[in-house]
Amino acid sequence: MLSADPHPRPPIRVLIAKPGLDGHDRGAKVLVRALRDAGFEVIYTGLFQTPEMIASAAMQEDVQVIGLSILSGAHMSLFPRIMNELRAQGLDGVLVVAGGTIPKSDIPAIKDLGIAEVFGPGAQFSAIIDFIRSHAPAPSPSW
């Protein structure tokens, strides 16, 4: 029965990353705790993450979701690089969401990159949590 009894609905694994050069991660840390309280397993990788760091952490941790938190305003240069790196590593199946100080006018272009949803500064944690719950892919459908 050890074998035939998979963990009933394993927690969703989420990577929260702070790409770029802004040195503030208070917001990201509060989000990390909110996601934990929602029952997710949250891997936090800290400040100043390059696209390569984010992709390699997402791959090794086999997360279903990546949350990008950005306050520097550099999202339009960083997000395409991150999405390219994820595709290059074959991580197209991972759900990517973004949050932070992102002007509404940038959102269509960001979604065109393959980022599923963008949460502005006023977003409720509950909206982020609900979105992840309903859109996260199944864990490791194949290997």
């Binding site: 934990r36 029952g39 949250v42 891997i43 936090y44 941790e61």
Partner: peptide, 9 residues
Amino acid sequence: TGGAVLGDR
């Protein structure tokens, strides 16, 4: 909640 913060990485 069953959630966790995995902060070692």
